[in-house]
Simulated assay, not measured.
Amino acid sequence: MRDILVFSESFKRWGGSVEYAARLACAFDAHLTGIWVCASPMAALPSFEEPELFAELLDATLDLEKEAAASAAAFEAHVLQLGQRKASWQVAEGYVPEALALAGSWHDLLVTGRSDHAAWGSLSSVGNIVLGAGDLPCIVVPEHAPTQLPALDTVAIAWNGSIEAMRAVHAALPLLQSARRVVILRGEQRPPVRMTAWLPPFDLAGYLLRHGMTVESRTLRGGSEDDVGAALLGAAGEVGAGLLVMGAYGHTRFREWVLGGVTRHVLAHAALPVLLRH
């Protein structure tokens, strides 16, 4: 893990997700890139019948982007206070998930915040960011989550045997290997989306042991998806986990994100950072 990207909703103040990302990058001796995204004025083009008004909007956007770019020194000074010496700052223009997907294509991990008080911290917005990130794993940091990295001493894995869960575990290997304790939270094994004649078996505990980890396992019980999500968070709290690793969007994207699901419940109620990959 050599390059970490953190999305900041502001270029004038730095939230908990920036602090978390800085401490994580410092722990792994990784380079940290902060990024702020400005909405494109082109999205407002149909609303302006007067060319002069649109020209004013373009000028205002350019001024805003210049101001954001000038905050690079403030960002680097902030993360330096947290111990992170290798950092840079970027400003992009456009739709946030698309900008993050492009910048994330040369990073190993994306960190973003979760807050009902932020435009891109709502459940639906975070879902769009995670979905748009493609293969890039994302750590979602709740608004009041601890940002000190000693919390990574224990990492929990939400395990249901799905391909999304397998991908999440694989993406989280550097974090899992740095933890003193890894706890597998076993839920009901999810059936495959398509009927197949044979599925290769996968022993998660054996896989982690081969990667040099000390592994524990707990079995969860739950009925509805909300019950499973609550059980996951409860078990993660009981073992003292500082990070929960889980796959996302095991159903179709529409059903999982719009109609609910374990992923949505966990993100809505988590008090700890959650690493997601779909």
Rank of each mutant, 00 (worst) to 15 (best):
I4E: 06
L5N: 08
F11P: 03
G16W: 06
V18N: 06
A21D: 04
A22W: 02
A25W: 10
A30P: 02
M42Y: 03
A44L: 10
L45A: 12
P46F: 01
P51S: 03
A55T: 14
E56G: 09
L58G: 14
D59L: 15
A60M: 14
T61K: 11
K66D: 08
A72P: 00
A74E: 13
A77E: 14
Q81W: 00
Q81V: 05
K86M: 07
A92N: 06
A92G: 12
G94W: 02
P97R: 14
L102T: 14
H107A: 07
L109A: 09
T112Y: 11
G113E: 14
H117Y: 04
S122I: 02
S122T: 15
S122D: 09
S124P: 01
N128R: 13
P137Y: 05
E143K: 09
H144W: 08
T147P: 07
Q148W: 02
Q148C: 04
I163W: 00
L176C: 08
A179P: 10
G187T: 09
P192V: 01
T196G: 01
L209I: 12
E216R: 15
R221G: 13
G223D: 12
G234H: 11
E238S: 15
E238I: 02
Y249L: 06
G250Q: 04
H251K: 12
H251P: 04
F254R: 15
L259V: 00
V262I: 12
A271Y: 02
V274R: 12
